[in-house]
């Protein structure tokens, strides 16, 4: 049933597709980090309309499937003159979807800084920017770094979805091999193992980082 020589034969082809998977992950994460920050700031806006709109956008994205969002970006955007390559559409889709989760992470980090810290900043006559950069952000960021790390891993595990918009990442590569040889077992098992091999040690690393950063 399981053919070792076949597995070894196709391994290099699948592994080489990891480049696409990993670059899509990091590019998507970068988009999510920036968009997430923007969403957080919009939500903190004094103008009710802006904060409500940001809130609504976040709710909508979080309550609809990322797969459909990817289709939307890949198939609907061109109707408005914005044609994206599968890779670009995938990065935008991943980034957009997870920005709504990251904005929540940022928010919890900021909310976790005690109110007194803002008051102390004011009492010491810091400017608003100084309060943010010298007092709030240094306290808000370390606790959420591991959470961000976990989202990076989650996004990594979501990249196979990009095969649905024809990006040839590792799952699509495995599927092509499967349909070519009619042997899906080895190809898909290798993909699963690669994910496990990369994400499990990373999650252990993140746990250690968490202990280190948040032992106060």
């Amino acid at each position: 049933m399981w053919d070792w020589s076949f597995a070894l034969e196709i391994l290099p082809e699948i592994v080489s597709a990891l480049k696409i998977t990993i670059s899509a992950t990091f590019a998507g994460f970068a988009v999510a980090l920036v968009l997430g920050l923007i969403l957080t700031l919009l939500r903190r806006s004094d103008k009710v309309i802006i904060s409500k709109a940001a809130q609504g956008f976040i709710e909508f994205i979080r309550n609809t499937p990322i797969l459909v969002q990817l289709y939307f970006i890949f198939y609907v955007f061109p109707e408005f003159g914005l044609s994206l390559s599968p890779f670009a559409a995938g990065v935008v889709g991943l980034g957009l979807h997870y920005s709504t989760y990251l904005s929540e992470v940022y928010r919890s980090g900021i909310d976790a800084v005690p109110q007194g810290q803002w008051e102390v900043g004011t009492a010491l006559n810091f400017s608003k920017t100084q309060i943010w950069t010298k007092i709030i952000i240094p306290q808000a960021v370390p606790p959420v770094v591991p959470v961000l790390g976990n989202y990076l891993l989650t996004m990594f595990k979501e990249t196979p979805l990009l095969s649905a918009i024809t990006l040839v990442e590792i799952l699509q590569t495995a599927k092509i091999i499967g349909s070519r040889s009619f042997r899906y077992l080895e190809a898909f098992s290798i993909v699963g193992l690669l994910f496990l091999l990369l994400s499990y040690p990373s999650s252990l690393l993140i746990q250690r980082l968490d202990k280190k950063l948040n032992r106060r």
Binding site: L185, F188, G192, F195, S203
Partner: peptide, 22 residues
């Protein structure tokens, strides 16, 4: 750990396409 370390779509494909082989 195995489920969380792999990807939902990979699990779905594995169950639907690979399991019939065994």
């Amino acid at each position: 750990e195995v489920i969380r370390g792999t990807s939902l779509l990979v699990q779905l494909f594995w169950i639907y396409f690979a399991l019939p082989i065994i």
